[in-house]
């Protein structure tokens, strides 16, 4: 397989990921010595197994799977934050932003400073982002709190700011980790869905992890189902959901079904 830069924004080939877990805390010098003496009990956990996938520019791709199946590891591998084991290859083009509740925000800085910092890292000039700042802060409905430190923000306020930055700032790849669940009040949720329905995400490549099958069905053009580290690709989201429900979830109402019911 060769990477087609003109069309593919992400290409993953023969990528596996194994984490080594020690029962004894290994981050310290003491822990290292403890394990070097053979007193620790290392365990290898295969988080992803021989993944091969490509994501084209402009695609809206979904990732579904049970908790602990390897979805977040796959997301980190797509962004390049986690490297595969030897022999695997990951190639990503351009900038990315990962939308999660913490995002790239520093709680000690104000919304204005965080927006400037994040946009600058994403490759936007400061003059342009200063011009756009009012639009971003308006969209996030945070005008009175633009110069308030983020540590005083509620979870919903932070999520709105993160969403506004991701939508307004031009990035090549938008990675969303259960984002709709944390956006906050119903009003903003509607606004966020409106963004997806209208043209603001046009030409953006989006990868969305979600337990909400309605969201997956509505927006994704392709879906990856992750189960015990193995990734299956489906061109039709309904087929993916069907496969997930029958082959992986079974008929039991587990935590994923519950979250789906709570977050329609």
């Amino acid at each position: 397989m060769t990477f087609d830069a003109s069309n593919n924004i992400v290409s993953i080939e023969n990528a596996s990921k194994t984490f080594t877990v020690f029962d004894h805390h290994v981050g310290s010098l003491g822990g290292r010595i403890f394990n070097a003496m053979g007193w620790g009990t290392p365990r290898k956990i295969l988080a992803l197994a021989d993944v091969n996938l490509k994501i084209k520019r402009g695609e809206f791709v979904g990732i579904i799977g049970k908790n602990g199946s390897g979805k977040s590891t796959l997301m980190h591998m797509i962004s390049g934050a986690i490297r595969p084991n030897k022999g695997g290859r990951v190639k990503r083009e351009g900038s990315f932003i990962r939308l999660s509740l913490g995002m790239g925000f520093n709680p000690e800085l104000s919304a204005r400073q965080n927006v400037l910092l994040n946009a600058s890292i994403l490759g936007v000039s400061l003059s342009e982002i200063r011009k756009q700042f009012d639009e971003i802060i308006n969209f996030a409905e945070l005008v009175p709190f633009a110069d308030t430190q983020l540590k005083f923000y509620s979870t919903g306020m932070r999520a709105r700011l993160a969403f506004a930055v991701a939508v307004m700032v031009s990035t090549d790849l938008l990675l969303m980790d259960e984002f709709f669940g944390g956006v906050g009040d119903e009003g903003f949720k509607k606004k966020a869905h409106k963004v997806f329905n209208e043209s603001l995400l046009k030409d953006k490549t989006v990868v969305l992890i979600s337990h909400n099958m309605e969201t997956i069905k509505k927006y994704c053009s392709r879906v990856f189902v992750v189960n015990d580290g193995k990734v299956s690709s489906f061109d039709n989201p309904e087929d993916a959901i069907q496969y997930y429900r029958t082959e992986i979830q079974g008929s039991s109402l587990d935590s994923e079904n519950a979250s789906e019911l709570l977050d329609p």
């Binding site: 962004s79 900038s95 990962r98 913490g102 520093n106």
Partner: peptide, 9 residues
Amino acid sequence: KYLIQNVGM
């Protein structure tokens, strides 16, 4: 880490 992980710093 919050920047490296989420914005590819």
